[in-house]
Amino acid sequence: MDTILDIAPARRSGRRPNFPSAFKRKVVEASYQPGASVSMIAREHDVNANMVFRWRQQYQDGAFGPVSLSATLLPVEVIKTPIDLPSAAPPPQKSHSEIVIEVGKATLRITSSPDPQTLQLTLQQLLR
């Protein structure tokens, strides 16, 4: 059976409506339902959507009593299964690097891991 809160109070022409807190709370809580549209809820209750947004802020501030923080919990099942972890990864092999620089007729080939300072000095001399 529908209660009196399902329908917005009748408006008197020329005056701003003064909705009861219980009505505002009901509209706001309906707007927080999963999949609910504030616009649709506002139309269903014959109020402006901007008003519902304002009521939602007031609701969060506690203007209509304590905020209902009901959360929907999903069922969880814990299953104990052995976890097969791969054995320790083999250490990375030393990479063999090679740098080849060609400037004019000169070719410089550096293999292995060159010292950064030596490499910088060599590049500076080649690019002069």
Rank of each mutant, 00 (worst) to 15 (best):
P116G: 02
S97D: 02
E77V: 15
K24Y: 00
A10C: 06
I99A: 06
Y59S: 01
S39R: 12
P17A: 15
P116M: 03
Q117H: 09
A71I: 12
L69E: 13
P34E: 03
R128I: 10
A22S: 15
G62T: 00
P17W: 05
S97K: 09
Q93F: 03
L121W: 05
D6A: 08
D46E: 15
A42Q: 01
I79K: 11
R43T: 04
D115S: 10
A106P: 02
Q58V: 02
Q58A: 11
A42P: 00
K105H: 14
T111N: 05
P92G: 08
D61Q: 13
E29S: 01
Q124M: 14
I83P: 00
E44N: 13
I7K: 06
L69Y: 10
Y32L: 15
Y32A: 08
I110E: 02
I41N: 00
A22Y: 07
G35H: 12
R15D: 06
L121V: 13
S70W: 01
L123I: 08
V100L: 12
S37F: 02
V78C: 08
R12D: 15
M40R: 13
I79P: 01
D46M: 08
D61V: 02
S13C: 07
E44A: 15
I110C: 05
E44T: 05
E44M: 13
K24G: 00
A8C: 10
I41C: 00
S113H: 14
G14K: 14
P82H: 05
P90G: 06
S112K: 15
V76L: 13
T81W: 02
S95P: 08
Y59H: 07
V100T: 11
V76Q: 10
R54G: 04
L119I: 05
I4Q: 09
I110N: 02
V103W: 03
A106I: 13
L127K: 08
M1S: 14
G14R: 13
A36N: 04
P34Q: 04
Q33T: 07
P66R: 12
F53W: 09
G65W: 04
Y32R: 14
P9R: 15
L5G: 03
K26V: 04
I4V: 12
S95R: 11
P66V: 06
Q124V: 15
S70P: 01
Q33D: 04
E98D: 01
S87H: 05
S68T: 08
A22V: 02
Q120N: 12
L121A: 14
L119D: 04
H96N: 10
Q93I: 11
